[in-house]
Amino acid sequence: MKAVEFKTKIKDNQIKIPKKMLSKFDFNHNENIRVIVLLDDQDTIDEQIFKEATKKQFLKGYADSDSIYGN
């Protein structure tokens, strides 16, 4: 099995294959294909930004002198 990867948009409930990718497909044969759809997960990106901001704010409340471990 070979893999072909491209980015596209869904339009009219159809996944459009970019013209430059059409040569990668051989539509003359009745062969099985596997389709995997990956969606950009904006919530995950927002969650990472939130966690980083929270960590920075949390650590602002501590000074080096608060450390229980000596140098």
Rank of each mutant, 00 (worst) to 15 (best):
M21H: 03
I49Q: 14
F27I: 03
F50G: 05
K7Y: 14
S65L: 04
F25I: 01
V4H: 04
K19M: 02
V35L: 15
T44M: 09
A53E: 13
E5G: 03
M21T: 03
A63Q: 12
K19G: 08
Q48C: 10
F25D: 00
T8K: 04
K16G: 03
N32I: 05
I68M: 08
R34L: 08
K51D: 12
L59T: 02
F27M: 06
K24D: 07
M1H: 07
F27N: 06
P18D: 06
K20R: 04
Q42N: 09
E52R: 13
L59Q: 12
G70M: 05
I17N: 05
I36Y: 02
D26A: 04
K16V: 15
N32P: 01
E52N: 15
F6Y: 15
M1V: 08
F58A: 06
I17D: 04
V37C: 06
K16E: 14
F27A: 02
E47M: 12
K16H: 13
V4N: 05
D43Y: 06
N32F: 01
F27Q: 04
T44D: 10
F25R: 04
D26L: 01
E52Q: 14
F27T: 06
I36P: 00
K20N: 11
S67Q: 08
I49E: 10
I68L: 15
T8A: 02
E47K: 14
I68T: 08
D41C: 02
I17C: 06
N13P: 00
K20S: 05
M21Y: 05
L38H: 09
K16R: 13
T8F: 05
K51G: 06
F27E: 03
K2Q: 10
D40K: 11
G61T: 04
S65Y: 01
Q14M: 11
G70F: 02
Q57R: 11
R34K: 15
D46P: 08
K20V: 03
K60Y: 03
E52C: 05
D43N: 11
I68D: 08
Q42H: 02
A3T: 15
K24F: 03
K9A: 12
